[in-house]
Design a binder for these strands. Structure first.
Length: 933
RNA sequence: GCCCAGGUGGCGGAAUUGGUAGACGCGCACGACUCAAACUCGUGUUCCCCUGGAGUGCGGGUUCGAUUCCCGCCCUGGGCACCA
């Protein structure tokens, strides 16, 4: 006690308020939790504001300092909006189904639910330490049955819907059934796959199996036999966005193409709406562009080529260049094309079959890696040119993809570089139909030039020729104008355990959705998280896997993106057990006003969530079509990796500056083993891993310097900084401020813990301002500082420029630090300005200034613009654009007087010398420029 | 190859509509306080051939004036890619 007292009095200045961040963090986090400070009101008369973060997958590794960056930004906005009087919805939850927990379950036998819950607990601890103002009473966990009940329910709505291209929206499947009963498929304009065909009398005669088989071609949730991405290592299929460079996004396992009967969602029906909808969204250009690329709209025509050997049918192709129809010298079909067998002549049979086999064995990755080598086989048969009637040889090659267009192309080697390469390789003829190129060198792909060798198209420009050719094709009934999208239907079933069961049972093999009263369909207990011996998914291991009617249930589960496609709706009414969210709550909270998350979800989550949003809107289930009006993608926080240099073939480590004198290997070393001078802790290094226990150093006692490099922050690079340790040492407010101070939110930037001292120093200065408090009126100069800051922070909040608002606060505090007294009211107003970024210290200041309620709902100080006006104006004086000196005049001095002052200024003559003043430009309030010459 | 974003001191970055380039912070240097250390405070810090000159990736242009606008190029990061 005495010691503590001595210690206290020995401090040079006795501060009224000593800054102890650890105490403040604990005190106020406890207070917020007890008082439920941040629970959002519903119903409410206040205007609403919905700030959302992309919810995390709770991984076993926990959070590093990069993860909370976006959460801090959104939390600042949430707190700011509360000060502005908004009723703020700022929730958090967990995207809890996922592959890592299941992989771990396979290895350990532990139920993925247990590891997931454990990870969630750890996440919650880490998040709590940072002082977020989340409304935890609204937390969702997607693996809980009270949540996935509604994921399953939405699936059922998708199943019972079709996309009517006439009305451009989803409708109940019953409206399709009415059309089918009236006139069969003729005149039905619905998004579909394959070639559904029936007449009204067929439909009437159909049994339930035949009807369902037809409806499956139109349902938004459907089963189809299609070529899918199969990942043998994970034992499941994957959607296109989950495959990167031919490998699985999670785990990097090889992916092969394989035809399978699969559940899919018809996102392709929404391609045009998803594309157009982007225009109205306040998202970054780059992420909109990513989605546009992914949707991949291209305009052209479908054209049918007659097949003399197969008179019943014709070969349909898609082309964006119908103007080049007279340049067609061969056709190419994909190796998986359904007509290929029939098209292949006896002579070519062995060659084509061998080629098909070769192509099917190649994985997606191999194909992508090897786009230069050209391969293919001649089928032996011919198609008839629709205009000239000439016979055109049909080839097969894997440069034509079954999944795009019709799986067949008309090859125009003179004007398509891929066709050109193919023709060169197999020595096929070329016909130039657009002038301006040189076939000796390359194909002429550009959409410019005049048509030649093309009968009725001759002399037209490419653009006009395209239109003319389509007209001709349509009028002759050979095809039609067509818009093609790259976006493909999303495979929805996963041969996995840890996901939502698909609420479908089979009656005589016909899929039916479960009655809604049977939801949720609970994930069953299984004895192992592996496929069964005959290759069935893990759910088939359940003792009984049957619906209440005793019918067999679907055994695949939903993919990770199912739950995240609608979670933002559940936060509005998280405990509702009658519907996914009640209508009044949906109407009140509406769209997400600000969504913060990583740009890596551009083609996955953000597209699927928009798709579900459009669908739910079409079916009248939500009052808006686009879920996220404004989106901000936070940048990555990179790690500052450290490398030690080992002399090759030895156990000797040398300092970085000596490394070039030896042949050295650079080895990642954990950044916690390095001090702020970049010196390695030698003992700690020896103990770090057994491999380094015998390490020798040159010089033996050090110092051994490491080399630094900016890299992605990750465990394998040993450069991870944990937010807990920052909070423990410097407090949550310092972490929050520093993450914002580092730079613009959207930008990637390296983390350097050394820089933290800037913001901790700032926080200490803030707490020391309390020594200057007095009850009297505020001075003019302290108010000027205050109102400059109010102005700056208001503008920065709108533009999400949190880095500059932190520096503005630093400037204000530096100014106040030079003043002898500060009014209580000034300090209280400042506390509110500080509160969004550094809430713990702000609460403490507010409390010490005599407020008993939390600062969280204190009104934002009102700007008095009169206080911003200076009574004097500084003008920089330039000569030919170079600033030379300053003049000071009273505010509002007329330009002519300023000019006269500058002309007569003693320094002016020295810069003019023997030249003439040509002109004097006075920009009021800005600058004076004297033009001499 | 096509598309998008970006390039400013030793470092992170600032400059809101074309108007003092380098705010704020780190680091560094010097000084004060201290028995000492930490903390804290103060001063300086774009570069150079320093009464001046150059300078925002490079080369041009528009302008009284360009980090900001226009044209051409280079580099970095991201997206798409036998998509017909």
């Amino acid at each position: 006690m005495l010691k503590a007292l001595l210690n206290l009095t020995s401090r040079r200045t006795f501060a009224l308020m000593e800054y102890r961040p650890a105490e403040l963090d604990a005190k106020w986090q406890h207070y917020w939790r007890e008082k439920q400070t941040f629970s959002a009101d519903f119903p409410s008369d206040k205007p609403k504001f919905y700030v959302l973060d992309m919810f995390p997958y709770p991984s076993g590794a926990g959070l590093h300092v990069g993860h909370p960056l976006g959460y801090i930004a959104s939390d600042i906005v949430a707190r700011f909006k509360r000060h502005q009087g908004f009723n703020v919805l700022h929730p958090m939850g967990y995207d809890a189904f996922g592959l890592p927990a299941e992989q771990y379950a396979i290895q350990t036998g532990q139920h993925p639910e247990r590891t997931t819950e454990k990870n969630i607990e750890r996440y919650r601890e880490q998040l709590d330490r940072i002082g977020f103002s989340f409304d935890w009473s609204r937390e969702v966990r997607t693996c809980r049955s009270d949540y996935y009940h509604w994921t399953q329910w939405i699936f059922i709505q998708l199943f019972h819907s079709w996309f009517n291209e006439e009305s451009q929206k989803a409708e109940p499947i019953s409206t399709l059934e009415e059309q089918l009963a009236a006139h069969g498929t003729a005149g039905v304009r619905g998004s579909h796959h394959g070639e559904p065909l029936c007449s009204a009398s067929d439909w009437a005669a159909f049994g339930p199996g035949e009807r369902e088989a037809l409806l499956q071609h139109y349902r938004l949730a459907f089963r189809s036999e299609s070529v899918v991405n199969w990942c043998p290592a994970l034992g499941t299929v994957l959607a296109n966005d989950e495959v990167i460079d031919g490998r699985s996004e999670r785990g990097g396992h090889p992916v092969v193409q394989k035809p399978m009967l699969q559940w899919s969602l018809r996102i392709s029906a929404y391609a045009e709406r998803l594309l157009i909808g982007l225009d109205g969204l306040d998202w970054s250009d780059s992420i909109k562009e990513t989605q546009r690329n992914w949707i991949g709209r291209s305009q052209g025509a479908r054209v049918r080529f007659e097949l003399p050997d197969l008179p019943e049918t014709s070969l349909e192709i898609f082309t964006t260049r119908p103007d080049t129809l007279y340049g067609v010298t061969f056709m190419v079909v994909a190796p998986e094309h359904p007509f290929l067998d029939a098209l292949t002549t006896q002579d070519q049979k062995s060659e084509v079959t061998a080629y098909q086999e070769m192509a099917s064995r190649r994985s997606e990755r191999e194909r992508q890696a090897d786009t230069k080598s050209i391969s293919g086989a001649f089928t032996g048969s011919y198609a008839r040119h629709p205009f000239s009637g000439a016979l055109i040889p049909i080839w097969t090659s894997d440069y034509v993809l079954m999944g795009y267009g019709t799986g067949a192309i008309m090859a125009v080697p003179a004007h398509d570089s891929r066709d050109y390469a193919f023709a060169r390789h197999f020595d096929l003829p070329m016909v130039e139909v657009v002038g301006g190129g040189d076939l000796q060198v390359s194909s002429h792909d550009a959409k410019e030039g005049q048509l030649i060798n093309s009968d009725f198209l001759n002399g037209l420009d490419v653009k006009d020729a395209i239109d003319r050719a389509i007209q001709e094709v349509e009028s002759r009934g050979l095809g039609e104008r067509r818009i093609q999208y790259r976006l493909r239907d999303a495979v929805f079933g996963r041969q996995r355990y840890w996901g939502e069961p698909i609420p479908v049972h089979y009656r005589n093999g016909i899929p039916e959705t479960l009655p809604e009263s049977e939801l949720p369909l609970i994930l069953p207990v299984v004895d192992a998280y592996l496929p069964t011996e005959d290759g069935e998914p893990p759910l088939a291991r359940a003792a009984t896997w049957e619906s209440r009617e005793g019918l067999p249930l679907e055994t695949t589960t939903m993919p990770g993106w199912a739950a995240s496609s609608w979670y933002f709706l559940r936060y509005m009414d998280p405990k509702n057990d009658q519907s996914f969210a009640r209508r009044e709550a949906l109407d009140y909270w509406g769209q997400v006003d600000l969504y913060v998350g990583g740009s890596e979800h551009g083609t996955g989550h953000l597209l699927y969530a928009r798709f579900w949003g459009q669908f739910l809107f079409d079916r009248g289930l939500i009052p808006f079509a686009e879920p996220f009006q404004k989106l901000v993608n936070q940048g990555m926080i990179q790690g500052l990796s450290a490398f030690v240099h080992r002399v090759e073939g030895s156990q000797t480590y040398v300092s970085a500056e000596a490394a070039d004198q030896h042949a050295c290997q650079a080895i990642h070393v954990d950044v916690s083993l390095v001090n702020e001078k970049d010196e390695l802790n030698l003992d700690a290094f020896r103990q770090w891993m057994p491999a380094y226990a015998q390490a020798e150093f040159d010089p033996p006692q050090g110092p051994i310097k490491v080399r630094r490099e900016v890299e992605k922050m990750s465990k394998t690079k040993h450069n991870v900084i944990n937010p807990d340790s920052i909070c423990e040492l410097h407090g949550a407010d310092a972490l929050r401020l520093y993450e914002m101070f580092l730079g613009p939110l959207e930008q990637s930037k390296p983390w350097d813990t050394n820089g933290l001292s800037g913001v901790t120093g700032f926080l200490r200065k803030v707490s020391r301002l309390m020594d200057k408090r007095h009850a009297g009126a505020a001075s003019k100069e302290e108010l000027k500082t205050l109102h400059k800051l109010i102005d700056k922070i208001q503008r920065d909040m709108e533009s999400l420029s949190f880095n500059t608002s932190v520096s503005a606060m630093m400037i204000a505090v530096n100014e106040w630090g030079a003043m002898s007294h500060l009014a209580d009211q000034t300090l209280a107003d400042f506390a509110v300005l500080l509160s969004p970024s550094a809430p713990h210290l702000a609460e403490e200041l507010w409390n010490q200034l005599g407020h008993s309620e939390s600062i969280a709902y204190a009104p934002f100080p009102v700007l008095d613009p009169a206080l911003l006006i200076e009574d004097h104006q500084q003008y920089p004086v330039q000569f030919n654009g170079k600033t030379r000196f300053m003049v000071e005049v009273p505010q509002g001095t007329p330009a002519a007087e300023v000019e006269a002052l500058v002309r007569g200024h003693e320094k002016t003559a020295g810069y003019v010398e023997d030249k003439q003043i040509r002109k004097v430009i006075v920009v009021p309030g800005r600058i004076v420029n004297v033009v001499i010459g």
